[in-house]
């Protein structure tokens, strides 16, 4: 048995402790906003917030995070998240959309840490999130936009 808190609700799971958190979220809890992209922490599509920091759920065995507090895209809220959502919509950032939950998770956590990141800080924080559509140009612009709305 593994007990973790997911989006504010405590869950006790009777599951193989080796199961990556990604597949617990998707197969068990039907929280499908978190995506599979690579399975080896190379693309960031599966990024969730674990105890307040970004975590690749595809390489996180659920048995290793007993007691942890996990937030997925479905459970995100707050001014940084709202600002990111507004900027993503204003700039029409997504193309295919598959990686965007992960991009939004990383971008939101970046703004929680650094309210006004530079281009270089954005590049560093977002380097682990791959986008084959290469929406990077708009991701960068949208993070700056969101940061500006948070200032004002």
């Amino acid at each position: 048995m593994t007990t973790i808190t997911i989006n504010g609700t405590q869950r006790t799971l009777d599951i193989d402790p080796d199961t990556p958190l990604l597949w617990v979220l998707r197969d068990e809890l039907r929280l499908t906003g978190t995506k599979f992209g690579c399975g080896v922490a190379q693309c960031g599509a599966c990024t969730v917030m674990l105890n307040g920091t970004p975590r690749r759920s595809c390489v996180t065995p659920v048995g290793m995070i007993e007691g942890a507090d996990v937030t997925t895209i479905e459970g995100m809220a707050g001014r940084e998240f709202d600002a990111i959502q507004a900027a993503w919509r204003a700039l029409d950032v997504p193309q295919c959309g598959w990686c965007q939950s992960g991009q939004v998770m990383s971008a939101t956590m970046l703004l929680q840490q650094l309210p006004a990141p530079s281009d270089q800080q954005i590049d560093e924080a977002m380097a682990g999130n791959a986008c084959r559509c290469a929406t990077y140009h708009r991701i960068r612009a949208a993070i700056h936009d969101a940061a500006r709305t948070l200032e004002g």
């Binding site: 906003g33 959502q85 950032v93 997504p94 959309g97 939950s101």
Partner: peptide, 10 residues
């Protein structure tokens, strides 16, 4: 775009 909002929040 019609699909932006749904693709931004999962």
């Amino acid at each position: 775009k019609l699909d932006t909002a749904e693709k931004s929040d999962g």
